[in-house]
Design a protein around this nucleic acid. Structure first.
Lengths: 239, 239
DNA sequence: ACCTGAACACCGTTCAAGT
DNA sequence: ACCTGAACACCGTTCAAGT
């Protein structure tokens, strides 16, 4: 409790109040205390939610903890947001908003590449975000990027069933890559990866291929493999 | 409460107990009540968990509700399973266990196709499963199928960086497709899809491409688009 | 060995009440 | 309009105790 204790303001400063603690400028050391750190807004709530998620993951995000970070009651949040699920939807869309939409130059392929690399990077920067993917991606930021994605495909000459296939393919690929990448990034403990590898190679007769060719192999980074996979897909889509 | 109320068994059947309700065979209508429906085992718990998830989704799965379904105390579950997260990991791996591993015929491409179609189908049959994907996929059933996947790629002649890229690409694609597909399947309300479409087409100036070419277009089913995308990927991987 | 009951430390959310 | 406080109906999990 850092806020001042409520005190009755009935008695005028006539009584022998030792130290004159009733004078405004002398009260509580005189530090001109802001009544409230800042007015609570939806934006501040979202920022705090993302910060909390980045710091402690989605498991530990609580309306109460979030409120504590904002120095308000948990119930105060419900004035600005209807419930926790909605807040999570907004936070996820907010993260996707960090993805820069490229200048729509004459090269749809390059623009697509940039968009999708940024998309995955944004989700991996907030590795809790893929696990929030349980509901349809219909936020404004997501839609804007999906719009750009499909527009580039159209510009590249795709249409009809080809266009629909390519759109799904690319969206599924980024989401899946973000999902899988995030699971490894979440347990940032570097020893866990070694343990996973040891677990697999320890069962050589069950997983001969995985243990010899290395499924969780460290020879190539996930970033590198995603780059290569994406290039391969783009090559076939817009040849 | 369907179970018999605990009653003191101190008094012998000598008292004038109208109706002889103390005689074993007449007690409670005489239905030879099994003391316990069945011994609680990890397998029964998993089956019940999957059934509960299928019925009500992951939001409503509770240790207490699960226990109720099994007619035990919620705390009894902790004898067989260490905590809820572990149980969810097991349930997810259990679902992947439904995916049939094809006969490793001479055609790696056909086998791969069958495996991946089955993989996505299994997850979509339990649309809560993709949202449980927050942790590394290291269960025995998942590993067995990943092993098969990579083995087929090796048989097709891939190795080194090419092999690693192809493995990631395919895994990311199925996971992403299952994820995205499940989000739509979860809100089975058919009116919601129409509403989503209306939302997008209502913002024609913001999403011109999506609203004219149809992002959530119903002209082709998601199944169809996944088939086509998969074929396209497999074509480029093993040409 | 396996299960119950009570208890602990939390949750999300509602709602009257304050300012 | 915006926030607090109290309250409700839950959670996951631990642990002593029963059988």
């Amino acid at each position: 409790m850092t806020t001042e204790e409520t005190r009755e303001s009935g008695s005028p400063p006539t009584s022998a109040d030792a130290g004159g603690s009733d004078v405004l400028w002398l009260r509580e050391g005189g530090e001109r205390k802001q009544r409230r750190a800042a007015p609570l807004t939806l934006e501040r709530i979202i920022d705090a939610a993302v910060a909390e998620l980045d710091a402690h993951g989605s498991e530990r995000l609580t309306m109460r903890r979030l409120a504590q970070r904002l120095e308000v009651t948990s119930t105060a949040l419900y004035w600005h947001v209807s419930n926790k699920d909605d807040l999570l939807d907004i936070a996820l869309d907010h993260v996707i908003g960090e993805v820069r939409i490229p200048e729509p130059g004459p090269e749809p392929r390059a623009a697509l590449r940039e968009l999708l690399l940024g998309w995955r990077a944004a989700m991996l920067a907030h590795p809790w975000s893929p696990s929030l993917l349980g509901r349809p991606l219909l936020g404004p930021n997501v839609l804007a990027r999906t719009e750009f994605l499909q527009a580039m495909l159209v510009r590249a000459g795709l249409s009809g069933k080809e266009l629909a296939t390519a759109t799904s393919l690319l969206v599924d690929f980024v989401i899946g890559a973000a999902m899988n990448g995030a699971t490894w990034r979440l347990l940032d403990n570097p020893a866990v990866l070694a343990k996973a590898r040891a677990h697999i190679t320890g069962l050589k007769e069950l997983y001969p291929t995985l243990s010899t060719y290395g499924f969780v192999d460290g020879r190539w980074s996930q970033d590198e493999l995603f780059h290569l996979g994406l290039d391969q897909i783009l090559d076939t889509l817009m040849r």
